[in-house]
Computed example of a mutant assay.
Amino acid sequence: MVNTEHPAVDRVREALAAHGVTPEIRWFDEATPTAQAAADAIGIELGQIANSLVFTLDGEPLLVLTSGAHRVDTAWLGQQLGGTIARASKETVKDATGQVIGGVAPLGHPAPVRTLVDVALAEYDEVWAAAGHAHTVFPTSYAELLRVTGGTPIAVEPPA
């Protein structure tokens, strides 16, 4: 039996509840640190995973919630935002979110983080996001994800 208590997960649960959302947080025996691993464990399409990726935009933390079926085109997205996007260090991720890579949730962070939400997630009625730990996920919707994160809807790669 996997331990179902963790401070980061508790903060995510509390942040969701503050927005009137109380999804069941699913715990896995094995870590699901990649979108594919999470999709396989849940039994859903890869695109339904809302990856929480932390970058920096001109040195400031930037959380990008992207469909598991997409890769963020950092050069293109940086141009759209008028700055330079770089991958955040693991220390920056931990400082900005209070969580570690592989389990970063869309919310439950020590302070607000500018958040962008991939418009491709709108294609699905249900999406799944990490809940603050690499062994956890929770179900949500695109609209709910925008609402609870205060995120900005945006394409994360150029149109095909």
Rank of each mutant, 00 (worst) to 15 (best):
W27Q: 04
E14P: 00
V93L: 09
Q79V: 05
L46A: 08
A38F: 01
P7Q: 14
A8C: 14
G103I: 11
G82D: 06
K90H: 15
A8V: 10
A38G: 12
D10W: 03
E45S: 12
Q79E: 15
E91L: 14
A17H: 11
W27S: 09
E5Q: 15
T4H: 10
G47N: 03
A31K: 13
G78Q: 01
K90Y: 02
H19M: 10
T74I: 13
Q48T: 03
L62H: 00
I101F: 07
D73Y: 03
R13Y: 01
A69D: 04
V21A: 08
P61M: 07
R13E: 05
E45C: 08
G82A: 05
E5D: 06
F28Q: 01
K94Y: 10
E5I: 03
I25T: 12
A75S: 13
A75R: 06
P33Q: 00
A15R: 06
G47V: 02
K94W: 04
H19L: 05
R13W: 06
A69T: 03
P7R: 08
V21K: 12
G47P: 11
D58T: 09
V54G: 04
D95T: 15
V64D: 01
T92H: 07
I25R: 00
L16S: 08
N51M: 14
T4R: 13
R11F: 00
T4G: 08
V104G: 10
P61S: 00
S52T: 14
A15N: 01
G68V: 05
I42C: 02
D73R: 05
